[in-house]
């Protein structure tokens, strides 16, 4: 019984990580054929593909440890928004290029630190996924970092745009470092990551890039969270409407 509860906790944890990856992968995929350069189209599709790949691995792991006969697609396509566990920053609309880069600027250094820590997880599957994802995230960060410099220290317009975009997304970063009861339970078991402990390093990575990009760090005047409890923005429902359309219209089939 204890063991089955433990597995359910791991499944829930993996679902949260999978939902984060799925929603961000979806948003990034919306860039296809909309990029400012053909090269950038390719880069954003590539990063999107990394996230969809992670979503598959996390959700597959969740379905496996859960042991209820579901699979990655049932988890992705047959849960409603109240059952989604992604943190809010990932579901926000793709916006313009500045908004996309601003979100990645918050997310990429977080993932670099998060996966470094998750590689130490006692759950070998989670550790294995982290081992692959860490390499991706390091390159994502390189890509984002270089764009932060160009946008921040480019033209007056780009400076203003990235500053505004950063300001608009800033209140969502706190949730990345919030520890839920589930996080604490699995941290004690040596499986989950101590999110709060990542914050000082993340702060210094952010300060470094903002300084180099001649940008001022936004004030911590507002904050949003609730994604891990299924309390979402209005945006997620529309994302899922699109994502889940075929499966919901024709349930129970092979595709």
């Amino acid at each position: 019984m204890a063991s089955s509860n433990h597995n359910l906790s791991i499944a829930q944890y993996a679902i949260g990580l999978g939902d984060d990856a799925l929603t961000l992968g979806h948003r990034l995929s919306e860039w296809c054929s909309h990029g400012p350069y053909l090269e950038e189209d390719i880069a954003l599709i590539n990063i999107s593909l990394d996230y969809i790949g992670r979503a598959r691995m996390f959700l597959d792991h969740a379905a496996t440890v859960e042991g209820e006969g579901r699979d990655e697609d049932q988890l992705a396509y047959f849960r409603d928004d109240r059952e989604f566990r992604n943190r809010l920053i990932f579901e926000l609309p793709r916006g313009d290029f500045a908004e996309t880069i601003a979100r990645q600027c918050i997310v990429d250094p977080f993932y670099v630190l998060f996966f470094e820590a998750l590689m130490q997880s006692k759950d070998p599957v989670l550790a294995g996924i982290a081992g692959k994802a860490i390499k991706e995230s390091r390159y994502h960060w390189k890509h984002t970092h270089s764009w932060m410099l160009r946008l921040g220290d480019g033209t007056a317009e780009s400076h203003q745009r990235i500053l505004t975009a950063l300001d608009e997304v800033w209140g969502y970063h706190f949730e990345l470092f919030e520890m839920t009861d589930l996080d604490r339970e699995l941290l004690d078991a040596g499986i989950a990551v101590d999110l709060a402990a990542l914050k000082p390093k993340w702060d210094s990575m952010i300060d470094e890039v903002l300084t180099a990009a001649t940008l001022t760090r936004p004030e911590d005047t507002w904050r949003q969270s609730g994604g891990r409890n299924g309390e979402h923005t209005e945006h997620l429902g529309h994302l899922l409407t699109e994502l889940q359309f075929i499966q919901r219209a024709h349930p129970g089939l092979q595709w």
Binding site: E40, G53, K132, K135
Partner: peptide, 22 residues
């Protein structure tokens, strides 16, 4: 590779290249 892999492969060169893009 995307179709066949069960675990996802990154393409570090691409991102690096894109980082240097302009």
């Amino acid at each position: 590779r995307a179709a066949k892999r069960t675990h996802h492969k990154p393409s570090p060169q691409l991102i690096q290249r894109m980082a240097q893009q302009p």
